[in-house]
Amino acid sequence: MTTLVTGTAVEAVPTTSWRRLTARIWADRGARVGLAIVVLFVLLAILAPVISAMTGNGPNDFHEDKINKALGGPPLGAFGGISSEHWLGVEPVNGRDLLARILYGARVSLLISLLATAVSVVIGTLLGLVAGFFGGWLDAAISRVMDLVLSFPSLIFMIALVSVLPSGDRMLLLILVIGFFGWPYIGRIVRGQTISIRHREFVEAARAGGQGNVRILLREVLPNLLAPILVYTALSIPANIGTEAALSFLGIGVEPPTPSWGQMLQKAMSWYQVDPMFFVIPGTCLFLTVLAFTLLGDAMRDALDPKGSH
């Protein structure tokens, strides 16, 4: 999944052109579609309890009258039991409402991937800034650690860590573990950009003016890196949504009965022959969210790409 991010060289952009940038992003039709889908899913996730109350189906209410017990539990009715009561049908065996589970699952997917991205971005930005700005042994040490983390098979380590660590709070654990394996990507970008601007006139001017290192980093260097950081953030959200779903699919995501899309797909695997809607629905949601965030990230990158090569 990381290949989405590599090979995107985004230059630092002066903050004064923010308005032009947003205009350029808005002019991209893909970006508008992406934004619409993202907003839709975020709203659905936030409104999950409201919508669930409206339809009268909670995410964990069993509806055993909606399934065919004689056949081992497939939903009654066509298309996975879609009806006026259950807009997306019901889950096999226990008849839980798929719409409610999809909505609550959206909360899990979005929350974990957004917070994991935040973790990588914060660690990566801080360490990248320090490495690029101070250079010397600090840079060497941080760069080595980044190389090392990148040479770890991240999925296997995530699986191993999540399953070995005490799971007091599985969600927090997932956020930290996914976030941890993502920071070197942005760390490298920030480090490179910091090196390219640390000797620019405005930084020298600030130093000549007697400002301290921390102040220069936060007030002079960091604002100039916001653009590449934002692009990276936008592009790593879909990657993290995919990772969270993959971990849930492998059975080490959030613990049941809390729903998540990956976990629904895992359950659907043993039903794909009889009840294909059960995997099509969460799969489509996953596809749409990943697509939407990628469209947004692409548009941001294109707007910031000085060579206009995309």
Binding site: L4, Q266, M269, P276, F279, F287, V290, L291, T294
Partner: peptide, 17 residues
Amino acid sequence: LTAASLPVFFTGLMALY
């Protein structure tokens, strides 16, 4: 773009079906 947004476990199940 479409293909890059489809997770393997979704396309896999789709292909199997």
